[in-house]
């Protein structure tokens, strides 16, 4: 019986993560500009990955694979904001029509 409870917890968390990914994919089609789409992609990069990997950690039990999955979360949470930062920098830097989408703050 305890096994089945664990199974249903795993299934719930796993499909919550997949729901985050579905939201992400809807977001990148609904938003109109790259800097907006990054918001959508951030959902999957952080919350979706966290929920799916946590579900897998619960399912796997206490062994070496769990540790590696924890490493995966730490790694992705460090690298994904950094790559988003550089991506937005590329966008700011290469778009000649940036002022159509972005209102820049005036310097004081």
């Amino acid at each position: 019986m305890a096994e089945w409870i664990r199974f249903w917890i795993v299934a719930a968390i796993l499909f919550a993560g997949i729901f985050c990914y579905v939201l992400e994919v809807i977001g990148i089609f609904r938003f109109g500009y790259v800097l907006n789409r990054m918001h959508a992609s951030g959902i999957g990069d952080t919350m979706g990955l966290l929920l799916i990997v946590v579900a897998l950690m619960i399912a796997s039990g206490w062994n070496f694979t769990t540790l590696k999955l924890l490493l995966l979360i730490i790694f992705m949470w460090l690298t994904s904001p950094t790559s988003t930062h550089f991506l937005s920098m590329v966008e700011m830097n290469t778009n000649p029509y940036l002022d159509r989408y972005v209102r820049r703050r005036e310097k004081t």
């Binding site: 920098m89 700011m92 830097n93 290469t94 778009n95 000649p96 940036l98 002022d99 703050r105």
Partner: peptide
């Protein structure tokens, strides 16, 4: 807090692309 942008003196966020085009 927006007091200082460390990339301001380095990055080129201007409309130069239009000119070059």
């Amino acid at each position: 807090e927006g007091d200082q942008d460390p990339m301001e003196s380095i990055l080129d966020i201007s409309m130069q692309a239009d000119q070059s085009r």
